[in-house]
Design a protein around this nucleic acid. Sequence first.
DNA 1: TAAAAACTTATAAAACGAAAAAAGTTTTCA
DNA 2: TGAAAACTTTTTTCGTTTTATAAGTTTTTA
Lengths: 203, 203
Amino acid sequence: MEIKQRIIEESFQMFVRFGIRSVTMDDIAKSMGVSKKTIYEHFEHKEDLLCQCINYHKSLQDTRINEIKKSSENVLETIYKIMYEAVSNMQKVNPAFLADLRKYHYKLCEELMPRHEQQQVEEALALFEQGVADGIFRDDIDLKIAAIVLNKQLKTMSDENVFVAENISVIDAFKTIILIFTRGMATTKGLEIIDRILKQNES
Amino acid sequence: MEIKQRIIEESFQMFVRFGIRSVTMDDIAKSMGVSKKTIYEHFEHKEDLLCQCINYHKSLQDTRINEIKKSSENVLETIYKIMYEAVSNMQKVNPAFLADLRKYHYKLCEELMPRHEQQQVEEALALFEQGVADGIFRDDIDLKIAAIVLNKQLKTMSDENVFVAENISVIDAFKTIILIFTRGMATTKGLEIIDRILKQNES
DNA sequence: TAAAAACTTATAAAACGAAAAAAGTTTTCA
DNA sequence: TGAAAACTTTTTTCGTTTTATAAGTTTTTA
């Protein structure tokens, strides 16, 4: 693999695991067994490296979402799988990563986050609309609001430690939310599919 | 009305409208046409006044919730009415109020907030349990998680300005959330009641 | 030639102090 | 007697300086 790509993948892992601030360019160089000069030959500055890390991660995510879509039988299955992966990924991210991004890379954050969030909302909206078209979701719901709310809900869930205090695992909380949410939007047909999926997962 | 009670009510209104920091003891005295000495005869210090304001507000809220419970035909009606009032009240609170509480009255905040939040969750939980007992809500849901999530959801909604950016009114967003949420927990019987309530509100 | 080390520079956090504002107290006066 | 004004004290804010750390650059060396 090309050295530049290797630097992106390695430093992304480090940023996600320890945060941005606490991973220095020296750390990255040492961890990869290269000199800082080599890194600076491929990236203008740390923020440039960080930006390329994030873009790389996004492209990975997009690929994964398309894979899931292809392998799912209906919108509900797609939603469950995507959400499960999203929450699993969220749990791996050190809170310092987002905190550092906001604090020390405010400009980059302001540039990337709104677009990223909007993409996520649009992704959810498209799935919901597909669900309505397939007779799985009710047609009397404001899908846009639903998409925004679900997005916010999952974000809040990972940020806060409400569930930790109550001895509830994030994954259980997440399952409950998604289940209530999809049932709340589902038609009779949708409810049947949900029950079928639940039974499958039990066994 | 007793002067002490009048001070509590007036200063609470001012705190909620403008925040805590920007309402000085001089402001309160001037607004009430009394001297600061009079205020300090009834309250040890500003934080004491603030604390009594909050407790007063809580007792009002409790009374209101009991009224709503009595006047409702079923749990769903109770939930809708309580939530509607809660959101209406939230909108009236200047964000500076909560910000000041956290920043300048951290100790008081740490003392009151967790208890307050827990009470709200328990209130929701009791309603959900009643709903299950009445055959309105499904019995296969983790009610505790549901209660926490709904609570958090409404809190997030008022804090963030997601909906403002999307030109969605807070009240519309709130209605969508509550509708999806209650439908997601409802049995067939519950769904029928929800539809009936919706029809009533249309006309 | 590229890693390692040594270096300079930029940034951020911490420490400090002055100034401002408001809490809390005392005095004045109607 | 209690409102209004004047006062002291405490707290917060704001600007400055110092210090430390890590970014970014250059030099050394294997």
